[in-house]
Amino acid sequence: MTPSDCPEPAAATITPYPDGPLIVRGDFAVIAPDGRQIDAKRRTIALCRCGKSALIPFCDGTHKALGFRVDTHPTPVESAG
């Protein structure tokens, strides 16, 4: 299957990466709870999923130091601990 077989799903996509952040691509804006826009600084961003980043809402790699695991693709044989 080539990428052209999969039509573009939406204006923006959110992809949970294994044991890591949510990667957001496409046409999006990051808005703070008070309604102000947060400068995303790049076209593709990583949103922290472990909650421990010093740059919330963005990932800063801290999840690795913490050994953050998330059972994105549960398999019947191995437990994701």
Partner: peptide, 8 residues
């Protein structure tokens, strides 16, 4: 911040 994205 950038390399946390690039890494993935």
């Amino acid at each position: 911040e950038a390399d946390a994205v690039h890494e993935q």
